[in-house]
Amino acid sequence: MADQQAEILTKIQEIVANQTDDLNVDDIQLTTSLKDGLNLDSLDIFEIVDALEDEYDIEIDSDEGIETVQQLVDFVQQKINSKD
């Protein structure tokens, strides 16, 4: 489980760091707030969710209530595991 969390985090770091040259992988930790910590707006968060959907072949209907990187990791993990 922990390995899977770490892998999802790495993926999120990669996706977010690719959005601009302003953010580094180190800026993105589990406790980081997506909005305030990374200055992402709802459209940016959509882009991340969208890339995660493609990566893990999952469907995320709504990103409502997801505020931190940890919550996003948990959400993706739950989707992956409910798929099996």
Binding site: Q19, T20, D21, D22, N39, D44
Partner: peptide, 18 residues
Amino acid sequence: TTLSKFAKQTVPNLVTYH
């Protein structure tokens, strides 16, 4: 960083700053 993000998406190898 809206425009830098659009730039990255449209031309991924552009170097972007804000």
